[in-house]
Computed example of a mutant assay.
Amino acid sequence: MSDAAPAREPVPAPSLPVTWRPSRGRLVAYVSAAVVVAGAVAMAIFIAEPFKLPDRLAIVAFACAVAFVLHLLGRVRVEADEEGLTIVNAVRTHHYTWPEVIEVTLLVGDPWPKIDFSDGRTIGAMGIQGSEKPRARRATAELAALIKERGEADEG
């Protein structure tokens, strides 16, 4: 793990399976989605008369679309199991076996860690939010320990 913070004692690899997901971002996404949908339903019920049923339904449908986008942001996570690593980001889900995983880095100021793979790809792991500083450092250190224990970095 690359981090500009002072060196810390090594973190042991967690037992598998393990899932890392943000706490604040998830809470904000789902509470916001509920508020948007509830507000749209209330607006559709109490809006002035020139708005007909199709207009009211469109308001609620738009709120549901916004809630879906918020759900995509709230579902992000990083899962590690015996087979490998699954990174669920807002739009895409990536699955890699342990030998394909090279390294994880979280630099100070990064929004989330970056994971390097043997095929040359680097993917951001949105499930570990850099804004949750101590928690993000701990999760990244645990993931780095798993990669060292099971991944390509262990070979050679």
Rank of each mutant, 00 (worst) to 15 (best):
G74D: 00
V88T: 15
G84W: 02
P134H: 05
L72M: 14
K133Y: 10
S15P: 11
D116S: 14
L72F: 07
L143D: 01
R135D: 10
A29P: 12
V18F: 01
I115Q: 04
V28P: 05
L16V: 10
V101A: 02
V108R: 14
T86E: 14
E142N: 02
T140S: 02
L146F: 01
G74E: 01
V41D: 06
A141C: 03
L57W: 13
A58F: 05
R121V: 01
V66H: 12
A33E: 04
F51A: 14
F51Y: 15
A63M: 03
K148E: 15
T97P: 00
P10H: 07
I102L: 14
H94C: 06
D154L: 13
A7N: 13
R8K: 10
P99R: 09
K114Q: 11
I45E: 08
P111I: 04
A80S: 05
A33H: 07
A141K: 05
A40Q: 01
K148M: 13
R135Q: 12
C64T: 12
L70Q: 04
P22S: 03
L72Y: 07
V78W: 00
A125Y: 00
V91S: 10
V104W: 01
L146S: 02
T97N: 06
L70I: 05
T105D: 15
I59V: 10
T122P: 05
G25Q: 01
P50R: 03
T86A: 10
Y96V: 02
A38C: 14
A80N: 05
T105C: 11
G39L: 00
V104Y: 01
R24G: 08
L27Q: 09
G120E: 01
V76N: 01
W98I: 04
E132K: 04
G39V: 02
R77A: 06
A61T: 10
H71Q: 03
L16T: 11
W20I: 07
L143M: 01
I59T: 12
T105L: 11
D3M: 09
E100A: 06
E79A: 08
T105M: 09
G74K: 00
I147E: 04
T140Y: 00
A38M: 10
G120Y: 02
A63H: 02
V69D: 09
